[in-house]
Design a protein around this nucleic acid. Structure first.
Lengths: 238, 238
DNA sequence: AGAGAAAATTCATTCGGATGAATCTGACAT
DNA sequence: ATGTCAGATTCATCCGAATGAATTTTCTCT
């Protein structure tokens, strides 16, 4: 009985949310109140709340309170024709993305390999943050060969779309060549950027886009909030 | 200085592992010793260790101690020709899988939809656990239409390979039709089955396999230990 | 009213301490 | 050698308490 006490309250709250007894946006009782009601220590309450936050079921905000998450999980389709905006918009989600920084740097090893560049080649690194309904869902870095796409980040920022930007460089089509996904704990700065609880893991999605003839044109590494996204893949065509 | 004290020891240990000062299999000092050495409370030490365990960098074992993880992350390639064994073996990993249970049940809603069955149709549910070098990495349920594949689980267990089993049913080829991936916290029983720390999240991979002409033949839902796996996808052919 | 300061709320982090559970070690008897 | 059991070690869980930080609410003064 003494063991795994905190799972009781976690499961109770989880049930309340699923069944609708607690609905999206509702504020939960304070930690102290929950501790009293369930007759357990506040630390066990915190443990339970942390577990729920990791699943994205609730959102814990310091100084304000704890709330039932109101944003459902986004579905992001990965395939040959992976297009961030087009894939998220159909879900009735307002997707925006913002340029955080742009720089010209010597390509890191992985980028050199991914883009088939010579060691020491320069690339442009643009860092963007993606929001769905004003809530950050992903933050990522994209690398382009600096010689071929000298001002990619700036143009992308003006044109507002990756597809358009490629077109302005004379590339009318591009396809996803390779994708890799893994999960890890969020670094504290990532958690801050994504406005998520420090214990929510992130999904790291590394990808290579290429022209239809197979020439790689971009290498990206996007950090997704694991609680807010769901990836799908169709293997027929893409 | 008082804030986020525990991240200091987390980062220190993480560095020690990455740099090789601590190597695979090494036992870490006990919680108490670490607390003394870093001049912080044991609870902060635990918090740091939990964070490292979530990333799969260390493995915490009650009554034994805490050890640097010795199993590297597996890479599992998802594509049109997704075959568990063939995709993992090239990495020098001894992959085995074991039937945990087999049953004949009324198809759950999602399965009905995935396999295009009539409501109330029966399916076989086989639960298998997959081990890589004797370490569990995944546990999953696979559903097959009971009419067409009445004894799938049993045959699969005898023949030792999914491909062979399908062949015995007259299916010489099959392809991955659809895959979806998301992350969530592990349920306590899943954590136990996968022999992982309760705080390590899992990746839920739902898939539909089909014959080349597009007829769905199986629906699976596999729970992967998020710390031990890494998914990749090639979008050219599969 | 309106602006700004003070107070109250609420979560964040940390510490110390206690008990339980799993595992290993070593003494002991067979 | 082998098996058993007591004790030590180590992590797991829990509680209570204090201080700090972020936010909201209330009050005060102009």
């Amino acid at each position: 009985m003494t063991r795994e006490n905190w799972t009781i309250i976690r499961d109770k709250l989880s049930d309340d949310i699923r069944s609708g007894r607690l609905s999206a946006g509702d504020q939960l009782p304070t930690e102290t109140q929950l501790a009293v009601r369930f007759e357990i220590g506040r630390h066990s309450v915190r443990r339970a709340l942390e577990a729920l936050a990791r699943d994205g079921k609730i959102s814990i905000e310091q100084g304000r309170g704890t709330f039932v998450a109101d944003a459902p999980r986004l579905t992001y389709q990965i395939g040959k024709r992976t297009r961030l905006r087009r894939n998220l918009i159909p879900q009735g989600v307002a997707v925006t993305s913002r340029l955080v920084s742009a720089a010209r740097v010597v390509a890191p090893d992985e980028v050199t390999k991914a883009l088939l560049l010579n060691p020491g080649a320069k690339v442009t690194e643009s860092q963007r943050i993606t929001l769905a309904n004003d809530l950050p869902v992903a933050v990522g870095r994209v690398y382009h060969c600096a010689e071929r796409f000298p001002d990619f980040a700036e143009r992308r920022d003006v044109l507002g779309s990756t597809t358009e930007t490629y077109r302005s460089f004379g590339i009318n089509d591009y396809v996803r060549q390779h994708t890799s996904i893994f999960s890890r704990a969020a670094k504290s700065e990532e958690a801050k950027t994504l406005k998520q609880h420090p214990d929510v893991p992130v999904l790291v999605v590394t990808a290579i886009d290429a022209t239809p003839d197979g020439t790689p044109i971009s290498n990206s590494r996007v950090i997704w909030s694991a609680a807010r996204v769901n990836f799908t893949m169709e293997h027929s065509d893409g």
